[in-house]
Design a protein around this nucleic acid. Sequence first.
DNA 1: TGACTTTAGTTCGAGACTCGTACTTAATAG
DNA 2: CTATTAAGTACGAGTCTCGAACTAAAGTCA
Lengths: 400, 400
Amino acid sequence: MRPHLRAVSDTEGLRRSASGTEGLRRANTGAVLRALRELGPSTRSELATHTGLAKATVGVIVADLEAARAVAEEGSRPGVRGRPGRPVALRGDRFVSLGLELNVDYVSAVVLDLAGDIVSTTSRAGGTSDDLSDLARSALDEHVGADDVLVGTTLAVPALVRADDRTVAWAPNLRVEWADLADALGSLVPDVRVGVSNDANCAAYAESHHGAARGASHALYVTGTVGIGAGIVQDGELVRGGAGFAGEVGHMAVGDSTALCGCGRRGCWEASIGMKAMLAAVDMSELDTPLRTAEAVAERAATDASVRDGLERVGRDVGLGIAVLSTVLDPEVVVMGGYFAVLGDLVLEPARRTLDERLVSAAQVRPELRTSTLGIEAAALGAAEQSFGPVLLGEVDLLA
Amino acid sequence: MRPHLRAVSDTEGLRRSASGTEGLRRANTGAVLRALRELGPSTRSELATHTGLAKATVGVIVADLEAARAVAEEGSRPGVRGRPGRPVALRGDRFVSLGLELNVDYVSAVVLDLAGDIVSTTSRAGGTSDDLSDLARSALDEHVGADDVLVGTTLAVPALVRADDRTVAWAPNLRVEWADLADALGSLVPDVRVGVSNDANCAAYAESHHGAARGASHALYVTGTVGIGAGIVQDGELVRGGAGFAGEVGHMAVGDSTALCGCGRRGCWEASIGMKAMLAAVDMSELDTPLRTAEAVAERAATDASVRDGLERVGRDVGLGIAVLSTVLDPEVVVMGGYFAVLGDLVLEPARRTLDERLVSAAQVRPELRTSTLGIEAAALGAAEQSFGPVLLGEVDLLA
DNA sequence: TGACTTTAGTTCGAGACTCGTACTTAATAG
DNA sequence: CTATTAAGTACGAGTCTCGAACTAAAGTCA
């Protein structure tokens, strides 16, 4: 255990977002941190013009952050006229967050630092509460020092998570005693807020901050193996819905309306583009993992035209669903994870064609359809990034 | 003209949302105004506990608002122990906003006041730039005095409006010279920010603040006559999408995949549930206005079982689309406008049944399906309400 | 080489704001 | 008539941001 592990207090920090002058300082500190994330190492002047704050104010804030070891000065960049600026950069060695994923047959942990760099990332087979807490424990032991500050922990799960970001409403694929898991994580990281979040939402968040949708403030992430899920990012933030269940696109009625879905209904998108439907379309069978299965399909497609035809059919239904989601949500980028990332253009090219056909108007621009680059740790990474959200928004105080 | 009309300056007010202490004051003033909208007339103590501000702070803010004639004291409520509080209420006679709608065959204007009360609402046949500015002019002349402050003006149009909230990207049904219209409105209300917004988005906003979705922070509004459109409210704010085109649900591929749509494609939702499809399903023909047509259908349905059967079929496809939207967006309330509001349960009952069948899980709650109560001025009302958004969020300064 | 220019960053005082405490005010309860 | 209760205000302390003046550190040019 890490007896000296400090944590950003939750009850204190989240109490109010900004009403007193110290809340104002928090908000402005958050603005500076965001600017540093966005611009990279910057001088105080650059931060001042970018945030709109006065130079003097930025000076004070940067000094505080430096004292807290959240930022550090770098070597100056000479060559320009006038006094050279002294750039400061976010430091990655003090403030970290932990992102976890508990899935059906694997668990992952990602340690992310304030600079946005990934400190460590591990995955392991298994899907129990114990597997997860073991992984979390070793990630903390190895990569979080006694003097470090853990700003938060978030757990990604393939489940319907309520809007409170803490409780699970429905998780048909998981057999977990949630109360036990909460206890285990709570004792592992005492005094740290442990949030729970849907895995597709987390992955969407990761793609929009680190992955294929980086830079886009409106993105859609679609993942799929057996089931199909999505995460929606609007204006940089996740769309959660009233109960927290937004993005459950697998069972929307799109595609072949006669296809029988595992849920017992007909016409679900999943029944047209889920892994099983894809395998049926190419007349192949499942291997031990979804990843390996998809790779085998991709390999056969290189030589077998009938496999390519099957993927073409699946791709068209993929495009049909993306078209529905795009007309509703108007994202700039759509990122495809799960087995779609492995098959790539074999599926996405027909999807793009269908998408073009179904655009509402000439004025609309087709969203870019990209494959995920983050791999299996996407959800854990997004979970970690979510824990930094309140810090960067200035809702929580790093200092003191 | 109203030479003395004062306006909340736009360049000044929107410059920064909160960085100096005066921005802090604006934000806290906004919090007090929101509390007054939400709670109704309240004492300073009640406002203090609800906003989390100190009693002293609330006292100062209320005094400023009173000086600006934004609030007024009401008679005290006796009967309780202790010194009776002196409730203050939002005043409706000084700060107003103007909401306009320019549609294919009618124009509307709504004057809304700070208290959230509708000062005036007018509609008129016609669809030209001149029709609109005439209506706007007379609404201002009759209901906005020389000493009043117009906080903003927003124009709702059946068009794709860009995310800048000012320019129109595509408006196939309107023949309007947008530059002329902008000039006309600009000279009508000088120094006032004139925003442009999609009509369905405006109506959705209106429903969530004044109509059938009041109180719900996650709502979906679906309207339809010939075309079908939607507006999405998440966490009290409109979802706009990357380009500003979110909510264009008419041409998503849902329902009868063989139905031919006016856009030339097959399978659009509009082709299954648009007014023309509905009329075909009940074997009736169009009258002079959509409203009258829908009323005629409702009347025939009372006696004619085959009409009811036709509406039943349409209703199922309505439910199918709502199910798609609900699984993606998870709203608490779905409000149906357009001809659906006239036909009511004749369409909504089968829609509810379909919706129940297509819910993802037992954990999910079916969103409430309600009919719009706002009528033809919904969009203009929402437009007016949108102009108050920045005021209530504290992004703009009412005083000084 | 040395004055000049240019840009970065800090110091300092003024001004704005919120907050807690103590105080005043206005009602009811007994 | 006194005690109690609660609302609202006055006041001083503390925090914060900001602009202006100032200092610092480079390059430029004669």
